[in-house]
Amino acid sequence: MELRVTDLTCARGGLPLIEGLSFALGRGEALVLRGPNGSGKTTLLRTLAGLQPALAGEISCPPEQMAYAAHADGLKSTLTVRENLAFWAAIHGLREVGPALEAMNLQDLADRQAQHLSAGQKRRLGLARLMVTGRWLWVLDEPTVSLDAASVALFAGVVRAHLATGGAALLATHIDLGLPEARLLDLSPYKAAIPADLGFGGFDGDNGGAFL
């Protein structure tokens, strides 16, 4: 099983953002997405995760095999760290949260309410959620935001362990994770051309293009 993306076009707010993107990601591999702000990293990841439809192209891997982590961690402030994690574990049909807590160095905070965590601790809890999904493909949007250097290294170790057990990771990030084995994919060459013709072309299913 691998992720194979073919000729993908995705749009935000009715305008195509990425066009003709193709890449493959097999088990044990990590791929880091690069590109300036607004180049469509978040849009691409949301499209892969099945949260928004692709305008064109194919994604070989169904969203059910991906663990998606966005900017927001999906934490409930009045639940404890353990309760937050146990909830996501139960949603994904797993029971054990101990290893995930330990891996992200959260075991001492396990009984603290999420509202009393620092931003970096919250982020670590959000990333610990990935480990209790039991899914092989991690799709991560800026996973290292608000993490300090030690936590970034901790996280890189978790990703490496995930790859070693046959997992894969697709990361959009600006910083160097310390994952030398990860391949880089620059999104800039796939920036969608802005429709130039003013004639009325196709009129079905395209977002607003009918009116250009």
Binding site: G50, L51, P63, M66, A67, H71, A72, G74, R129
Partner: peptide, 16 residues
């Protein structure tokens, strides 16, 4: 509330 803190996105990608 689930929309604000991102849980809704994660629930939408969950097995449920």
């Amino acid at each position: 509330l689930d929309h604000e803190d991102g849980s809704l996105d994660l629930l939408a990608t969950s097995p449920i």
